[in-house]
């Protein structure tokens, strides 16, 4: 198993959140939201802290984390790639672009490359339909992306 050392300051921040919610079991989802904001994802160690602080069993916390698709136990890559699958992008071939990212990086949607460099996710409309299909890498936006251009985008980060 991969044991992760959590940053003490972030753990403290999470504990403050639990305190702010008065250690109320009913606030589990809100606490997990905050936790994911702090750590970027919800590794087992973070879920364990939440379970301890709110005094709920860890199986239940894991049950909630795996139920809601917003929560993720996989850390985002150093360069998170999002492919817009909104209507405009979709009709202009976003799926082929997404397939090309998946092929080149050998990951599924929602996964991160083993070296932690890239993660691939899809999203619905970034509000730049004129540039469809749109891809974002971190903060940077790429417009009118064709499958043939995917290789070049990735090259910028290698």
């Amino acid at each position: 198993m991969a044991e992760i050392k959590l940053a003490e300051s972030k753990v403290q921040e999470l504990k403050e959140v639990c305190k702010k919610f008065d250690y109320d079991k009913g606030e589990l989802i809100n606490v997990l939201h905050a936790a994911q904001e702090i750590f970027g994802y919800l590794p087992a160690e973070v879920q364990e802290i939440v379970a301890d602080e709110l005094n709920v069993n860890i199986a239940h916390v894991y049950g909630v984390v795996t139920f809601y698709s917003f929560f993720t136990m996989i850390p985002k890559g150093e360069h998170p790639i999002s492919i817009c699958m909104g209507t405009a992008c979709y009709v202009r071939g976003a799926e082929k672009v997404l397939d090309e990212f998946k092929r080149l990086l050998d990951v599924k949607v929602g996964e991160t490359t083993p070296d932690g460099k890239f993660s691939v996710s899809s999203l619905r409309c970034v509000g730049a339909c004129g540039l469809a299909p749109v891809v974002t890498v971190g903060e940077k936006v790429y417009g009118r992306v064709a499958p043939e251009g995917v290789k070049d985008i990735l090259a910028e980060y290698n």
Binding site: A44, A59, H60, F67
Partner: peptide, 24 residues
């Protein structure tokens, strides 16, 4: 969970993928 308070089992995942399992 309720009678024994052992808290070892929970429903996890959703839809067709859902099962009752221990944490992780």
């Amino acid at each position: 969970n309720e009678i024994q308070t052992v808290g070892c089992l929970s429903a996890i995942n959703r839809g067709f993928e859902s099962v009752v399992a221990p944490a992780f």
